[in-house]
């Protein structure tokens, strides 16, 4: 049996700097042992522990989709010891990856429904995984209308710019990109995410919204979706907490009786209402 504390060896095969400030990068990893890729079989919304020997581990949402074979991607902001070390790495470096960990976006529940994706800033990574999963050729017909609302503080902070552009060209996606404040070259929409949600006003009928972003964005976005008629069961989000083991043993990421690492990170608003507000 796989020891859950031992990481799979992975090689950094591609690094993409996502933003002008250069502190958010996407890291593409290849499994050193090809058989490990199948063992790391994941669902959008799950996370992994990026493991840098000598530095430690950091829990990060998986940014690629399981429909993308041969590699797995994580988009990481440079912040603490591990992520700073990661940002110093070059292609070809070996490190470790544990997981997949946590529950996932509720794919089966989402099937047959209209999906509204709402993302803010850098917290768009596991939403990107979900989008690429849903628009994958064989999967697209399993989901209804897909609306995407994504915003960042300024154009330079939008991540996955090439994909955003490609998605905007598709006629089976309603893509709404916004920035709090544009610059000289910005031709797109300006405005905060909650305001854009109000403007786009997706129908609540047979619809689920999946929201990820900074707390302040979530706080102002939720009332918009309540007004649109979305029930708490149909508003889904993902929590973050300090984690170590990732498997519900080390005892620090609990919210009430639930461990965010094992029972989450994905919860519906209806589920969160039953938990204590300690996150």
């Amino acid at each position: 049996m796989q020891n859950p504390y031992i990481p799979y060896p992975v090689e950094v095969i591609k690094i993409i700097t996502e933003v002008d400030t250069k502190d958010i990068k996407t890291f593409r990893f290849k499994f050193v042992n090809p058989e490990d890729e199948a063992k790391f079989s994941y669902i959008p919304g799950q996370f992994g522990e990026l493991s840098i020997y000598g530095k430690g581990e950091s829990p990060i949402g998986i940014a690629s989709s399981p429909t993308q074979k041969g590699y797995v991607e994580f988009t990481v902001q440079k912040a603490g010891v591990v992520t700073s070390a990661l940002h110093e790495m070059e292609e070809g470096t070996l490190m470790g990856l544990r997981g997949p960990l946590g529950n996932s976006w509720p794919i089966e529940y989402l099937e047959g429904k209209n999906i509204v994706i709402v993302g803010g800033g850098f917290a768009f990574t596991t939403l990107r995984s979900l989008i690429n999963y849903m628009i994958f050729e064989d999967n697209r017909k399993r989901f209804g209308k897909i609306t995407i609302i994504y915003g960042a503080r300024n154009p330079g902070l939008l991540i996955y710019k090439d994909e955003l552009e490609a998605w905007q060209k598709r006629d089976d996606l309603n893509v709404n990109i916004t920035v709090d404040k544009g610059d000289a070259t910005w031709k797109g929409r300006e405005g905060f995410v909650p305001a854009v949600c109000k403007e786009v006003a997706p129908s609540a009928e047979n619809a689920v919204t999946v929201i990820c972003g900074p707390p302040v964005m979530i706080r102002f976005t939720l009332p918009v979706f309540f007004d649109l008629g979305f029930s708490k069961e149909n508003i889904i989000t993902s929590l973050e907490m300090r984690m170590k083991c990732g498997i519900g043993k080390c005892g620090r990421c609990n919210v009430g009786s639930k461990y965010v690492c094992k029972d989450g990170p994905v919860f519906s608003l209806a589920e969160l209402d039953k938990l204590t507000k300690e996150y």
């Binding site: 020997y53 430690g56 581990e57 083991c245 005892g251």
Partner: peptide, 24 residues
């Protein structure tokens, strides 16, 4: 009480990952 921390220690070219008791 079973809460723990996981940390890394390096000496020269080698290192260990250890877990130690932690406290809420």
């Amino acid at each position: 009480c079973h809460c723990f921390d996981i940390s890394d220690e390096v000496k020269g070219n080698d290192g260990v990952r250890i877990r130690s008791w932690d406290s809420c």
